[in-house]
Simulated scan of single mutants.
Amino acid sequence: MGRVNGRLNGRRAEVEANGEKVNVAILGAGSIANTMATTLVKMAADERYAGWIHPYAVAARDYERAEEFRGRYGFDRAYGSYEELAADPMVDLVYIATPHVFHAEQAILCLKAGRNVLVEKSFTANAAQARELLKVADETGLLATEAIWTRYQPSRAIINELVASGELGDIRMVRADLSYENHGRDRITNPALAGGALLDVGVYALNFIDMAVGADHGRTIASLNTVMVPYESGVDQSNVTTIVYDDGMMAVATSSRAVASDRAGVIEGDKGYAIVDNINNPTGIDVYGLDHEAKRHIDVPAQLTGYEYEVAAAANAILDGLDECAEMPHADTMRIMELMDRIRGAWGLAYPFERR
């Protein structure tokens, strides 16, 4: 079904009633693209999504790779170039699944061709690229939203409700860590690909803090201190950032691509504390009292993969004619991008393409 400027008209119920669907395409065929493809296939078989979400196409830098990907997941179309995918008028939403450094260029390509975009984190390599991308989104009137899945998942509301409930008392400290071993992928250590732990995994720690006690609760950053240990290539291997908010709330974000960690988020108050088991994809929250005895466990709803929420939010936004998702509005994306620029600036870390 063709679209005008890649945009669907009418709301979800009307689309389902007409037998129409939001055609989702994936730009890129790497590991995260496979996770999204698995998600889309599961959504297409799930009664909550089957009536309005359709796995449609994939594009890679060569056709054979794209065709193998298409066949594996049963998509309709495969393209051997990103330009061909962007030119397909049947595409309603493109998921950008490539390294950070390419996001701005590829999202802009899609937007200018009339395609809405869901851009994998980090949204871009720096704030300047993010502004350029969002400027094109504004000019085209199309959706551009960041695919940082924790912003869309039910765990976000659960954590915010716990914080607001008073059960933990006066919360004054939050800690968040996300670290993984180095899998040997070039994108992790290559400065030309905007490598390093911060943009790859540290972005989750910063978003967790922002949601748990930061901007979601009306706070602004008063000061920060940060330090990192580099790889031989110069990008950050491990890092620690301490944030102090305008009301004295303190937060510590740590991340690494050299070690494994518990991936925990800890919210600390004067009546107790809560441990979120994995800030990258929370599945449960344990609440403790002052005696350090567990008071209760909060389950997070079962998921298909966890990616389905960002896809559904983006599709709904398209159907409603919006250019951003309420779960991750452009202001939130820009705040985190500017914060990561500020952190890298304190380290003296600039990528090669930023120095040119």
Rank of each mutant, 00 (worst) to 15 (best):
T189Q: 10
T189R: 14
N190W: 07
P191I: 00
A192D: 10
A192K: 08
A192S: 11
L193R: 10
A194I: 05
G195D: 09
D200F: 04
D200A: 08
L206C: 03
N207I: 08
F208P: 00
I209D: 02
M211A: 13
A212D: 03
V213I: 14
V213M: 14
A215M: 00
A215T: 09
D216T: 06
D216A: 13
G218K: 06
T220V: 07
T220N: 10
T226P: 03
M228Y: 09
S233P: 03
G234S: 06
D236Q: 08
N239G: 07
N239M: 13
T241F: 07
T241V: 14
Y245G: 02
D246F: 06
D247H: 05
G248F: 00
G248C: 01
M249T: 09
M250Y: 01
A251I: 02
V252N: 06
V252T: 14
S255V: 04
S256H: 12
R257K: 13
A260D: 14
S261C: 14
D262S: 14
D262V: 11
A264L: 12
V266M: 13
I267Y: 07
G269M: 03
D270I: 01
G272N: 04
A274H: 10
I275D: 10
D277E: 13
D277G: 12
N280L: 15
I285H: 03
D286K: 13
G289Q: 04
L290G: 12
L290S: 06
L290I: 05
D291Y: 03
E293T: 10
A294S: 15
V300P: 12
A302I: 14
L304R: 07
L304P: 09
Y307I: 10
Y307P: 00
Y307F: 14
Y307N: 12
V311I: 14
A313Y: 03
